[in-house]
Design a binder for these strands. Structure first.
Lengths: 113, 113
DNA sequence: GCGATAATCAACCTATCGGTTTATCAACTA
DNA sequence: TAGTTGATAAACCGATAGGTTGATTATCGC
């Protein structure tokens, strides 16, 4: 699970980390502030930040005794890029038709879409 | 890690599963065909499919002895939705300016908050 | 200097992940 | 009917994830 895209998606696969990113989307913040909303130790938050950093989603500076964390948006673009790329193929009308045919062949009655 | 969004991102955090989804984007396929490109047992593929199914990314039908898998796009929309929502805030020009200021302050080793 | 605060490091624990092997079930085919 | 193929179930295994406690480092305020 060491490729770049897996690291990004893996980092997003945790509500605490998504909460941290949501906070960072509004601007940089030190670690203690990032951890405040969560019922866990500062060490746990530090670990989550390391995961986010390894995925390239945050970078950390140094400002006195604080380590301000900053959101990096490029990995998020690559993530949405991957999804959209395949979603686009799927959404193609010809493929939709194909899907519908298979659905009918299966004898399943999905009235959705 | 049991909330819906975490399940989706977690499912995407594996190259084998992304490969399976990429194939499914072109249309439904039975399990053996999905597993063909990968150097692992059918049981492992079956497990990956179970992960994808639990995340709502694929649904499985029954067609004789085959179990055709089909891509479900709605969870992908929720995933990109979450990312875009926060990316949008970050990309706001005012925030960008803020980030730039912090970056400059760090570079000059200021001790001001 | 000292104590308090910000943050990390290290060790540990439990649960889950990603794969295997073995066995089982279901459906096609001859 | 038997034999083959598609697919899953169950038990197992090493590695990692996500959290804890305890100790350590660095910087601030006084």
């Amino acid at each position: 699970m060491s490729d770049a895209l897996s690291l990004v998606f893996g980092a997003l696969a945790d509500p605490t980390r998504r909460g941290i990113l949501a906070r960072l989307a509004e601007g940089p913040a030190p670690v203690t502030e990032l951890g405040r909303p969560f019922d866990m130790t500062a060490q746990a938050i530090s670990k989550h930040l390391k995961v986010l950093e390894r995925a390239g989603l945050v970078t950390r500076g140094r400002q006195g005794q604080w380590r301000p964390c900053r959101l990096e948006v490029e990995p998020l673009d690559r993530a949405t890029g991957w999804i959209e790329q395949h979603r686009a193929v799927w959404a193609d009308s010809l493929d939709r038709l194909e899907q519908e045919i298979v659905r009918i062949q299966e004898g399943r009655h999905h009235d959705q879409d």
